[in-house]
């Protein structure tokens, strides 16, 4: 969240956040360990302290495994299934890079645990094209240059595809509001908006 800092306050917080981020660097390591333990469990080796059964459908494919309770849906997709299209930006629900669909609705996969999705159907960016035929929203993003670095793009597209079925008003402002959970550091917003509006107006979905 953006705040209006005084310069001195800003530098204080900067120092605090540097300390914080070096602490946070620990967490991927802890996470890797948890994941490794989970993987071991799959192959019947060493057990994770708290591993649970998970049966989950991702992009039409059923997966059955045991997983550590701490693994988020995002880390499960990226690390266990190697579906790295879904991105990790903030890991705190603030950026939207991790947006996927669960049972047809868009959610942030960083703020939910994989174990909570036993029996669920998940669609990630890898699952919206039909073979080599891109989803109309993917085509529209390419046509309108709806990205620069591309890091936010999978999340933007997953949000945009979900939006087509949501009660979102017709105006550009309505779309901006409905897409406010997806940040783009490159500022590709005007082109993202154009892509979404073209798909909505064209009815190609």
């Amino acid at each position: 969240m953006r705040l209006n800092f005084s310069r001195r306050r800003f530098s204080q917080l900067l120092i605090a956040s540097t300390v914080l981020s070096s602490l946070e660097e620990l967490s991927p390591r802890i996470m890797k360990k948890a994941l490794a333990e989970t993987k071991d469990k799959q192959s019947g080796a060493v057990s994770s302290p708290h591993a649970y059964d998970l049966s989950i459908n991702v992009n039409g494919k059923q997966h059955k495994l045991k997983i550590d309770s701490r693994v988020t849906l995002l880390d499960f997709l990226r690390e266990n299934l190697n579906l790295t299209g879904t991105k990790k930006g903030c890991d705190l629900g603030q950026c939207g890079a991790c947006t996927v669909h669960v049972n047809g609705r868009r959610i942030k996969s960083c703020l939910t645990l994989a174990v909570m999705h036993d029996g669920d159907q998940v669609t990630s960016i890898e699952g919206i094209a039909s073979g080599d035929d891109l989803h109309p929203m993917q085509e529209a993003f390419i046509k309108h240059d709806g990205f620069q670095c591309g890091f936010c793009t999978p999340g933007q597209i997953m949000s945009a595809v979900a939006l087509l079925k949501e009660p979102c008003g017709a105006s550009d402002d309505d779309v901006r509001e409905c897409m406010s959970g997806n940040l783009c550091r490159c500022g590709a917003y005007p082109n993202i908006l154009a892509a979404i509006q073209e798909v909505r107006k064209g009815g190609k979905h």
Partner: peptide
Amino acid sequence: GASAQVRNMASTAGNLLQRTRCY
């Protein structure tokens, strides 16, 4: 409040019990 994705996840009781954003 929040964003469309968060609202698709957030529950009524959870919303009432969410903690402060004091940094």
